[in-house]
Design a protein around this nucleic acid. Structure first.
Lengths: 341, 341
DNA sequence: TTGAAAGCGCTAACAT
DNA sequence: ATGTTAGCGCTTTCAA
């Protein structure tokens, strides 16, 4: 067993109180005493027991991040930023993968199995905001994405409808009229895909184009393979689109893959736009046009929300619903066809 | 404040002991008592305080994962697998990003700032194994990658020399003779790049080719941009290679990017092989030939090492040095040139 | 089967 | 400036 405050105190011939003061640099301690204590600490290799400290403080300094999966580039980047920003606040981050399992999400939210985390940032997949309210949680929670939780919890997200509208409008502006969508998830409750579909349709209608259900392709997950499959379905149809708006960059890269395997030229035969601005899209061929959410801001704001709640006097900070800026990054995959203005 | 064991006990009219028994499902409790207690738990929304439990148990159930950065696909995939495998053991994972900072790595290892973690899995960047021994740690540590710690700590890694040798030999077998390398990191202590360079040179020599220092390109990091830059340097040289072995897939994808921007055909004009088998390489054009380490096994074995130490009676499990299998996955980026056998 | 109580390591209120 | 001590919430030994 490693040594405790008491051991150090004994060795230095002082009381636990004094050692605690030295460790925390808090109260004033005589220089000579401090030296003796520090010596004892070094000799014993003393390290404060954080469990004890947490028990005392009623706080652990640990926050949770719950995402469907860690490895997709979007989540990996976001998680990296959250860990980094959390570090600034001296918080450490526990990562949980919910794998799109409603039960896992619920368990995290209700804190079954015990309270370690001071707060939770969750990117829901299966659950809707409404599910959250059902559970009595003393735990501060921030939702990433999702539809508006109507004051039931904090939420940080981009304006998905507007962003999807812009992306689609951009494709239309390059002269394409036959724009398909990849990435609908009718089976899901979190609403993100639905919002992007709505923006997509809105842009079409504004251009006088009637949305075609057969050009709104559903997917199981947002991985490259799903995008590749959906693209293949589109190309196997009677009527082939000349542009695709994919609801994530990974879907877009999958679609790009299929297009090239099938011998289509991108962007000449098929233009593609994605969503997320992951690094791969900057190095693909052609470069991927995409909606770029300000990920660092998502991370920073989510943590700010959490901090407000954790440090606020006895709950009742009004729930905030923050919209994070995004911008359309145009690259080669949606270049205008030769001859188009 | 949320309710404690005592509150539940009071409400149910039993002692804390009994509530504890119910919560842990441990000792035998009369059905009727259990029901009353459970009712009180539900009513009060009781959740065990894990800090208290940890303090008692002397264990937190939390392990640390320290990696340079979370977002590179290789680390993201590995981290995802580690989180998943840790879950099987009912461990949660705290993630730290060391950003290649020796001081950060050292701090994690020495446990300055206190003990929360029961163990640490670290992928060192700046530190060498030798640095580890300098610190008196009661903390179980597993090294990922690195050179052999000579019994000073557990280590899990692929055979980098052999793998690099295979990759290079594969390029030679497709008829290329002018094989360059991208990814040396002479400033680093962890040895991985050095081992891969060694394997690369070994294969060249075996084929009767003298390694050329100007074709061993150093990089600052393993990102796509670094690979793109290194490739540009190679192409700007007097003498241009017909193949490149990149020490990571990201470097390889960056190199591929540059090659295509410069109008080179891959694999006809330039063959490329990477290392890591990240998902992007499966969807790039052409598909990326790569060394594929068994990442799940890396994760599983690392956790096993940790478990052995954490649960072993009073230290002194001999340090293990595990070699994880890898295989060469051949894709389009290294296809033989037409006319080559 | 259940209760009473000690103690894990730390901080802070109170005392000197 | 430093010592003494209660108590954070839990598990578990000892008793009943």
């Amino acid at each position: 067993m490693s040594s405790s405050l008491k051991d150090v105190a004994a060795r230095a011939g002082v009381s636990a109180r004094t050692v605690s003061n030295v460790v925390n640099g808090s109260a004033r301690v005589a220089a000579e005493t401090r030296r003796r204590v520090q010596e004892a600490i070094d000799e014993l290799g003393y390290r404060p027991n954080l469990a004890a400290r947490s028990l005392r403080a009623g706080r652990t300094g640990i926050i949770g991040l719950a995402i469907p999966e860690l490895h997709p580039p979007y989540f990996a980047e976001l998680a990296g930023l959250l860990v980094e920003e959390a570090g600034r606040r001296s918080w450490t981050v526990i990562i949980d993968q919910t794998r799109g399992d409603a039960e896992a999400e619920r368990r995290l939210l209700t804190g079954d199995g015990g309270r370690v985390m001071d707060g939770l940032i969750i990117s829901p997949w299966a659950l809707e905001a409404r599910d959250l309210t059902a559970t009595a949680r003393p735990l501060p929670v921030v939702l990433l994405g999702e539809r508006s939780p109507q004051g039931l919890a904090d939420r940080v997200a981009v304006d998905n409808v507007a962003a999807a509208d812009e992306a689609t409008a951009h494709l239309l502006s390059t002269g394409r009229r036959r724009v398909a969508a990849i990435g609908l998830q009718p089976q899901l409750g979190n609403g993100t895909a639905e919002q992007r579909a709505e923006g997509y349709r809105r842009a079409l209608r504004r251009a006088g184009i009637a949305p075609r259900p057969d050009w709104e392709r559903p997917v199981d997950a947002l991985h490259r393979g799903d995008g590749a499959r959906a693209m293949a379905e589109l190309l196997d149809g009677d009527d082939v689109p000349d542009a695709v708006f994919a609801f994530s960059d990974e879907l877009a890269l999958g679609a790009l893959h299929t297009a090239r395997v099938r011998g289509l030229r991108v962007p000449e035969d098929l233009a593609i736009v994605g969503f997320d601005d992951i690094e791969d899209g900057r190095f693909s061929h052609p470069g991927l046009t995409t909606v770029s959410p300000d990920k660092r801001q998502i991370a920073a704001r989510a943590l700010q929300c959490l901090a407000d709640r954790i440090y606020s006097p006895r709950n009742e900070v009004p729930a905030s619903d923050l919209t994070i800026p995004h911008r359309l990054v145009v690259r080669g995959s949606s270049a205008p066809r030769a001859g188009t203005p």
